[in-house]
Nucleic acid binder design. Sequence first.
DNA 1: AATTGGCACTCAAGAGACGCGAGTGCCAGA
DNA 2: TCTGGCACTCGCGTCTCTTGAGTGCCAATT
Lengths: 346, 346
Amino acid sequence: MVSERGLQVLRAIVQDYVDTREPVGSKAIVERHAFGVSAATIRNDMALLEDEDLIVAPHTSSGRVPTDKGYRVFVDHLAELRPLSGAQRSAITSFLDEAGDLDDLLARTVRALTQLTGQVAIVQYPSFARANVSHVELVALGGPRVLVILVTDTGRVSQRISFVPVEPSEADVTQLRARVSGLLVGRSVADSSQQVAAALADGPRPGVVVDALADAVLRVVGEELEEFRQDRLVMAGAATLAKREQDFRGSIYPLLEAIEEQVTLLRLMSEMVADEQGLSASIGRENEPFGLVEASVLASRYDGSTGGARVGLLGPMRMDYSSNLAAVRAVAHYLTRMLEDDDSSR
Amino acid sequence: MVSERGLQVLRAIVQDYVDTREPVGSKAIVERHAFGVSAATIRNDMALLEDEDLIVAPHTSSGRVPTDKGYRVFVDHLAELRPLSGAQRSAITSFLDEAGDLDDLLARTVRALTQLTGQVAIVQYPSFARANVSHVELVALGGPRVLVILVTDTGRVSQRISFVPVEPSEADVTQLRARVSGLLVGRSVADSSQQVAAALADGPRPGVVVDALADAVLRVVGEELEEFRQDRLVMAGAATLAKREQDFRGSIYPLLEAIEEQVTLLRLMSEMVADEQGLSASIGRENEPFGLVEASVLASRYDGSTGGARVGLLGPMRMDYSSNLAAVRAVAHYLTRMLEDDDSSR
DNA sequence: AATTGGCACTCAAGAGACGCGAGTGCCAGA
DNA sequence: TCTGGCACTCGCGTCTCTTGAGTGCCAATT
């Protein structure tokens, strides 16, 4: 249906529209791009593109604007990723190189990405399904409180306080620590969850104090493991949305809400289908089930030796896909390298 | 200068303006409020109020709008706090009663407050200046990594990984744990910081492995203590700003940025001066140094047995101070009660 | 001295009228 | 298949006019 030149016209429309924020007409195209044909010819192509629902005219007589479908075709077939400048690359590497632990690394990553693109940046914590529990620590805090600490070989540490029915003796704690360690250490987070569930299934022998103690602690361990399996996000750049308000017909409320909720974004990102490069995009009305019809999400996989996840971008549908996709890819690339390189240190 | 009735007129203007979002004129006042006088009389009062810079007319000929100063007088002298409804009170208590540890309690508090007021809610973590270090734990994670955990008697726990120059033996860790515990446990966070600094001052004896180890760990302990002293915020309801956009001349960008930065808000809240009830407000241009000229912040102290901090609200200058101050006060009250009641459990 | 009714004045906001110009669709001819 | 030409559409900015809410001031009243 649509000719090769027709696609080039689509590309020109997307680029110019992203650039100028204004509907683009046939005349503007022949002026800004070196098609060797007249405006009338472009107009014919545009009519076809409109038939295919790739562009649309806001008013009977003004330029055209890409539709969701138009952006989709652009991203899938027309966008050549604009590589980052040398300065940008070295800025990223030096910024990430200074990172300390995992939390710090991801915080830096997300800041770098929002800086680079001017959009809201999102990093998902590495999935811990494949991570193994490497340490369990119990600390009696005095009174009825026992601090439970879990560490995985991916470097994630979490702690939580368990309120136990009786104040445990030092021996109780030591014994319990050995038991829980035996149960979990070396196992994956998923396996560990099952172990804990099984251990809890019997329930405490009534009246046996040490059982009640173990029960309370194991319950907290279970909650903690559950939280491990739950994905978390780090985000930055929410304020940039205020500047782009006009791009969201009316209100940025749904965006801010999604950012605050996190759950929506997690679901959205997990449902995105990546291409062979690990890149993926979800554009405009494709986000309808998540209430983000005016927005686009770009994402890329990243990987560490013990598990990966996604890093991405949330912004208006009318965004610079070429640059932003390149930025996401680059950042994911560096992040992967950091996580593989010296993995032992995280 | 301004008569008693003049102040009542100011109150009427503030109330009506907050209500209707529109400049209020003399006629509207005599209609909605039962002053026993004519519109002309009200007009005379309004002229005086304008002389005092308490109200201002956006255009030569339309109703008046309160100035920052007008809101200030309203808050200080005219606002009677509108008590919460019984339903609201019981909603708060039951919601907070279900809370688990400190993190959970504060998260619930902030959600309750944003729910109650429709504004951005802020809770500052209890200050840890008065908190004492109650436990120190070191865990060798294998390789060059040592996990450092600090616990205070206020129930705050933090952990951090130290990268040490050599892989420590179990004995090294035990010995070091004893040393660090001796240095810190029972001391306040502030004192502990000094202890660590002093211990680091000498520097490691060159070539002595155990010294290098201790040095690395102590350095991390120092960082961690520093972070303890640094205040943190929990916030919720940022999305509500999108709905109130018109109230912020132009852009909510500065607000969103302050929310993301946190530091600004911390400074702002720490500089607010509370009245005898512990309540405080910072209105409009009073926030100028923080770039939040269009906004107001309300705050109240709350206290726990081991230290308190502030809970507050960020919103447009044109807000319902009566209800919102009451909500902040009530939430602070319940939070205090939760923290004092069963303090041992957090 | 305080209050009031009356009155002239101001000015934002909305409604129409109008022209401009960018952009379109279509068609006949190259 | 492309192109130049042409009639047509319609959003947008400008201008004018009207309307009405609200003001300040003043002389009269209490």
